[in-house]
Structure formats: C-alpha cells, structure tokens
Write a protein that binds this DNA or RNA. Structure first.
Lengths: 206, 206
DNA sequence: TGTATTAGTGAAAATATATTCAGTATTAAA
DNA sequence: TTTAATACTGAATATATTTTCACTAATACA
C-alpha cells in the first residue's frame, strides 16, 4: 500500500467531515466526528486527522471547527456533486484519456447538471468554425453520453484527438469538420474511439 | 427607520463575518469579530448578532463558530464578489436597462473575474453568426467597460437592443453585424446608447 | 418624560473543544 | 523479529468560545 493512499477508515473519516460540512455549512468538532463514527475517544479521530493532514487531504489550525478539506480531498467528492469539471490540457497521444497528468485545473460548469463524466477541453484549430466553435474556445464534453448522428464529438483517431461532427456509416465513421476548407475523414470503426459528446461551450473575449 | 433595515454598524458586523468566512473558509468566533472591529467586549458583538438574527440575516446554533449567513444576507454581497450574474430577460424598450423586473435569474460566471456590472443576455437572431455567436447562446456583458473599435457591444438604438460590432465614426456610430446577409447600421451618436461590451459566451447543446 | 433600540465596557461562569498522557491490539513491511 | 503504521480506549488538562450578570450613554419615538 503506497504511502499516499488512504485506508478504508481514513476515507470514512474524510467523508464524514465532508458530509457534515455539506449538511450544516460548518466544520465538525472532533467530538462530533466521534459520535457519527461511533468512536469513543477523541484520540481515535485525532489519529486519523493527523494521517489525513500528513497525506495532504486535510488542513487545520488549532482553533475550534477549523478542519478544512484540501483541493486534493475535494477531488474525491467532486465527481458526485459539485459544479467543477477538469480542464484537460495536452492529451498525450494514445495514452488512456483520463489520466491524472492531464488534469491541469478545475473550471466551473452549470450547477444544475451532473458533472460526473464531464470534462472540458480547449479548442485548437479552426475545424469547427462554421459551427461557431472557434480557436481558443473551451468545450464541455460528456464522456458517458452516446453519440448520435450529427452530434459534435471528441474522437481519438490514430493517436490524435479531434473535434468533429459524427456520421456513422456501415463499416466506418465519417468525421465531418464544420469548415469548407477542410475535408471529411472516413475511418474504419476499429480505428476510432469516441471520447465523448460536446454538450456545452464557453468563450472569453479580452 | 423601518425594523427590517440594518444600521451602519450592523452592516459592518455582517460584512466582517462574511469576509472572515471568505478568507479562512470557516466562521469567525465572537472574539475574532471583536478583534477585527476593535470592540473590547464580546457583548458588543453579541448584541449585533442578536439583532442580525432577529432581522433574518444570520443563523446560529449555540456551538463554536456556527454563525452562518442566510440567503437574505448573501444577496447583499452577491453583487460585489460572487460568481453569479443576472440573466436579463425581455428588456422593456426604452426603460432603464438594469431594472429589478428584468432580473429573471442568476447564472454562474467565471469565478476569477469581477462580476460587478456584468450581466448575461440570451441571443435572439442571427446577426452575429459569423462571429460564432448563435441564436440561443448566452453572452456576458460588462456594462462598466468602455467600448473600443471592433468590440462586440450591446447597443440600444431607437428603443431596440442589438448586439453588433462597434465602429465609431466622426458624427455617428457604425454597428456592423457579423452576417453577410445583413447590413451595417449607421446611427447618430445621440441616438445610440452602448449598454456594455461582450466579454464572454456560453452555449449549451442538448 | 418615559421607553425601546442601538452601541458599547468589564468580569466571571459555564460550556465546548482540543490536546496531552498512558496505554492495548492488529497488520504489513524490513 | 523488530519496527512503523493503523485503529483504538479512557481520563485529565488546557484552551477556546459562548453566555450571563451588572453596568453606562446616545438617539429616536410617542
């Protein structure tokens, strides 16, 4: 078991602190954590807290109710509830798509939608310019949604990531750009991986 | 002075609690409020807290650091700092732009930018289609920013609101659409009101 | 002229909360 | 087989925090 991983019990403690904060809008005291987890001695909890601080999941000052989850800890819970979504940077060709190294930062997404499986990507190039997707725009992609004809998708073809319109044919897939200067791409089904469907777009002038 | 209003000092106390929470991510103790406001007795602060609870701006349980701003209190600070921005609906022609009745809902905006003076608007029509602004898109507009040549602006002309590119001439303003099928509009300076500069865009597929 | 609200001071008491000390038992790694 | 980390118990102590009691003073209201 590598040092940085959490034990089952440590995860439970972290989740307890997170849930308490969510529910009551303020951090729990050590005694309150004891109660929720049925631990009789405050030291039982303090030990876990120390471990969680050492592993970079918690912060605190020696004040009352000053326990605070770090960014690292929030990432564990983010996938379920929050409004933040990872903005992926350079995607190393061919490697598994959703690896840690690619998570450059978290950016906000519409709070009334599930963010599970959603990621963001910065557009490079002009292949979708006629669909109103410009160089530098950020797109939001749902990796769990199934692509339908005409959807704008993120596809992995021969170790390259592209954003195109999706038109499935009998034995191949047509990836159509929204740019008259560029040609459609026809790829055999076994050479293309649809990474997700574009569900939103964000642009910043300035 | 009507009962529901806050005194100057009460506003200061509320702001102090709000700021503390923002900065340190947990609520202040009464003593810490005393320190920040240079009040020597905890009772000085407790009196204000009681008033703020009575007037519906605060909540608390008798635990340490459990002070919590209500929705009502948050509304006071939203306009200055937070990540929410009003999405304006139908804009009644000719009336002052920023009236309460037009505020239909609040939507999230980039958290790393000031939201003071920023509003959102849903695009109707295709006049900016070649600039990648489509029907149904939501644009973010900074009403405090000065327009420069070429900026995309929200303009009020003869009681009508339009989104166009801004080209000032000697005695008139050219409002240029990004759509080959539509014509530029030249309006005398005294007949046009620039409501703000477009600083962002958001689109939702689905 | 009395009464309520606001805006405090100062000290003491009561609680809430965190920390320290002294242990036990289990498991995985060196 | 020692060592370190995990996962606790139980009691006492120290500190942080809130609450209570007893006051003063200015202002607005009726």
């Amino acid at each position: 078991m590598p040092e940085q991983e959490l034990t089952q019990r440590q995860k439970e403690v972290l989740e307890c602190i997170h849930d308490f904060q969510e529910q009551l809008q303020y951090a729990p005291s050590i005694l309150e954590i004891c109660e929720r987890l049925h631990i009789r001695s405050t030291n039982g909890v303090v030990g876990h807290i120390r471990a969680l601080i050492r592993k970079g999941y918690l912060e605190r000052s020696s004040k009352a109710r000053s326990l605070k989850l770090t960014q690292k800890a929030h990432r564990i819970f983010q996938s379920f509830n929050n409004h933040m979504v990872p903005l992926l940077g350079r995607i190393s060709a061919g490697s598994p798509f959703y690896v840690e190294e690619n998570r450059e930062q978290m950016i906000p997404f519409s709070p009334n939608r599930k963010t599970d499986g959603v990621f963001a990507l910065k557009i490079q190039g002009e292949s979708m310019i006629e669909a109103g997707i410009f160089d530098g725009d950020i797109i939001f992609v749902d990796s769990k949604k199934r692509a339908h004809t005409g959807d704008i998708v993120v596809a992995l073809v021969n170790d390259e990531v592209t954003v195109k319109q999706f038109y499935p044919k009998e034995k191949c897939v047509e990836l159509r750009p929204a740019n008259r200067k560029m040609k459609s791409l026809r790829v055999p089904v076994n050479q293309v991986l649809i990474q997700g469907v574009v569900i939103g777009l964000q642009r910043s002038y300035e």
